[in-house]
Amino acid sequence: WVQCTKPECRKWRQLTKEIQLTPQIAKTYRCGMKPNTAIKPETSDHCSLPED
Rank of each mutant, 00 (worst) to 15 (best):
W1A: 14
W1F: 02
W1C: 12
W1L: 04
V2P: 00
V2W: 02
V2F: 00
Q3R: 08
Q3I: 00
Q3T: 03
Q3M: 05
Q3A: 02
Q3D: 00
Q3N: 08
C4F: 06
C4L: 05
C4N: 02
C4G: 04
C4Y: 03
C4K: 02
C4A: 05
C4E: 03
C4Q: 02
C4H: 01
T5V: 06
T5F: 00
T5I: 03
T5N: 01
T5L: 00
T5P: 01
T5Y: 02
T5Q: 00
T5W: 00
K6P: 03
K6S: 07
K6H: 06
K6C: 03
P7L: 04
P7K: 08
P7G: 06
P7R: 04
P7M: 07
P7A: 09
P7H: 06
P7F: 01
P7W: 05
E8G: 15
E8K: 12
E8H: 11
E8Q: 11
C9E: 09
C9N: 02
C9L: 05
C9K: 00
R10F: 01
R10V: 04
R10E: 07
R10T: 04
R10G: 15
R10M: 10
R10K: 13
R10N: 01
R10L: 07
K11R: 10
K11F: 00
K11W: 01
K11L: 05
W12F: 02
W12S: 01
W12D: 01
W12N: 00
W12I: 02
W12K: 02
W12P: 01
W12M: 06
R13S: 14
R13G: 12
R13C: 14
R13D: 03
R13W: 07
Q14A: 04
Q14H: 10
Q14W: 04
Q14R: 07
L15H: 03
L15F: 08
L15Y: 00
L15D: 01
L15G: 01
L15W: 11
L15A: 08
L15E: 07
L15R: 02
L15V: 10
T16D: 12
T16C: 03
T16Y: 05
T16M: 04
T16W: 00
T16R: 12
K17D: 09
K17Y: 05
K17N: 13
K17G: 13
K17V: 03
E18W: 08
E18G: 12
E18P: 08
E18N: 15
E18K: 00
E18R: 03
E18C: 05
E18T: 11
I19Q: 15
I19F: 15
I19R: 06
I19C: 14
I19M: 11
I19N: 13
Q20V: 09
Q20A: 09
Q20L: 07
Q20D: 05
Q20H: 06
L21R: 02
L21H: 02
L21V: 05
L21W: 06
L21P: 01
L21K: 03
L21A: 05
L21S: 04
L21E: 01
T22M: 02
T22I: 00
T22Y: 02
T22C: 09
T22Q: 02
P23A: 02
P23T: 03
P23S: 07
P23I: 01
P23L: 04
P23K: 03
P23H: 01
Q24G: 10
Q24V: 10
Q24F: 15
Q24H: 08
Q24D: 14
Q24E: 15
I25N: 06
I25G: 06
I25V: 09
I25W: 10
I25L: 12
I25E: 15
A26D: 08
A26P: 03
A26C: 09
A26V: 13
A26S: 08
A26T: 11
A26G: 04
A26L: 11
A26N: 07
A26Y: 08
K27L: 08
K27R: 11
K27D: 07
K27E: 10
T28L: 04
T28S: 08
T28Q: 11
T28E: 10
Y29R: 04
Y29Q: 04
Y29L: 01
R30L: 09
R30N: 06
R30C: 09
R30T: 15
R30H: 13
R30Y: 15
R30D: 04
R30W: 12
C31W: 02
C31Q: 00
C31V: 02
C31G: 02
C31H: 00
C31T: 02
G32M: 07
G32I: 00
G32A: 03
G32V: 01
G32Y: 01
M33K: 02
M33Y: 15
M33C: 07
M33W: 13
M33P: 02
K34P: 12
K34F: 15
K34L: 14
K34M: 03
K34G: 12
K34D: 15
K34R: 15
P35F: 15
P35M: 15
P35H: 07
P35T: 08
P35Y: 15
P35A: 14
P35L: 15
N36P: 11
N36R: 07
N36Q: 11
T37P: 09
T37G: 13
T37H: 09
T37Q: 09
T37E: 13
T37M: 09
T37V: 10
T37C: 08
T37A: 11
T37S: 11
T37F: 08
A38P: 13
A38L: 11
A38Q: 13
A38R: 14
A38T: 13
A38I: 14
A38V: 12
I39R: 09
I39Y: 07
I39V: 15
I39D: 15
I39S: 09
K40Q: 15
K40I: 13
K40T: 14
K40L: 08
K40Y: 10
K40R: 12
K40E: 15
K40C: 09
K40F: 10
E42R: 12
E42D: 14
E42Y: 10
E42Q: 04
E42T: 06
E42W: 11
E42K: 13
E42P: 10
T43P: 13
T43V: 09
T43E: 12
T43Q: 13
T43F: 11
T43S: 14
T43Y: 13
T43W: 09
S44E: 14
S44Y: 11
S44T: 15
S44N: 14
S44K: 13
D45G: 11
D45T: 09
D45P: 06
D45M: 07
H46W: 14
H46D: 13
C47Y: 09
C47I: 07
C47M: 10
C47S: 09
C47T: 09
C47R: 11
C47A: 12
C47G: 10
S48R: 12
S48L: 14
S48F: 08
S48H: 13
S48Y: 11
L49F: 10
L49G: 12
L49W: 11
L49M: 15
L49A: 12
P50L: 08
P50H: 04
P50K: 13
P50V: 11
P50G: 11
P50F: 07
P50A: 12
P50C: 05
E51N: 02
E51R: 07
E51T: 13
E51A: 07
E51C: 05
E51I: 06
E51M: 02
D52V: 05
D52G: 11
D52A: 06
